[in-house]
Nucleic acid binder design. Structure first.
Lengths: 148, 148
DNA sequence: ATTAATGATACTATAATAGTATCATACTAA
DNA sequence: TTAGTATGATACTATTATAGTATCATTAAT
């Protein structure tokens, strides 16, 4: 069972990198180089992000990608939805009203509750969250080095 | 994203049905009939449950399956592990120490936390839980009918 | 014009899930 | 002791999801 697939993971990395460049356009080639991710695969991911309005693309020489939204408006949940489909996929397997077995419905209710909690835990996570916490980590590292 | 696959779902149904028969052996054919699940597929699932020690099988005429453990010792998490692998699969995608990008590690930490909470929510759910709550539902139904 | 970038799209590869089929084996009962 | 009924082991196929690649068209800068 995987919570995140490669797609989503790579998308987060790419977006993070782009965010760090503060408005400068970043090419797929640069991202591929820096993040060590296959160029063609990254390109596909970036095209999707562009189509979905998360990044803004500029064609031709000097082109590349920029964030189309501020980092605190880019939600991890959106990326999961884009690349992995809705978390809320707990439809009745025997998709009918006359569930032959009520037990499974109890199970479904339990799973619903767990899915709700997954969603509510994912909900506050934005690109900004991730970038900020990274900064915190780095600052702590520096602090530790100074006090040592 | 799916939390439960068909395998697991069917396993729960089969085990629930078997549990309701209180020690009487139940054949794959009966389960298939009652639960409207393909006989061959169910058989495969039952064989796995048997191999994993969750049910106890008796071959030949009059044979079938019984629970090998009391219903409060059969954990949903075990079924998930058997049929879907560990929830805890959040290994580093770039499986090396020199993660080229610390950002993803922050993400990994977040996902770890969410996975922990999924596990702790799943943990208390046993076959008995499901059966009991089913009874509660049924009893409430009856009560409603009486008071109406 | 040439070069460097993305857009659209179609294709292949791999892995996970879902499902089927076959033969061997064990037990029961006539 | 044989016929019938059950599971065990195992191998196979089908479908779907994920991962990854390739090609040609389009746009912009120099």
């Amino acid at each position: 069972m995987k919570l995140l697939t490669r797609n989503t993971d790579y998308a987060v990395r790419a977006l993070s990198y782009i965010a760090m460049e503060k408005g400068k356009t970043v090419t797929a080639a640069e991202l591929s180089e820096e993040l060590k991710i296959s160029w063609s695969f990254l390109r596909k991911i970036l095209q999707i992000l562009s189509r979905e309005g998360l990044v803004f693309s500029i064609k031709g020489k000097g082109g590349g990608f920029k964030l189309a939204q501020p980092a605190d408006r880019i939600f991890l949940l959106d990326l999961i939805n884009i690349f992995q489909g809705l978390v809320r996929l707990n439809t009745c397997i025997t998709n009918n009203k006359a569930c032959p077995n009520i037990r499974i419905c109890i199970l479904k209710k339990k799973i619903d509750i767990i899915e709700d909690s997954i969603i509510s835990e994912l909900h506050p996570i934005t690109l900004k969250t991730l970038l900020n916490e990274q900064n915190d980590v780095i600052q702590n590292e520096l602090l530790n080095m100074q006090t040592r």
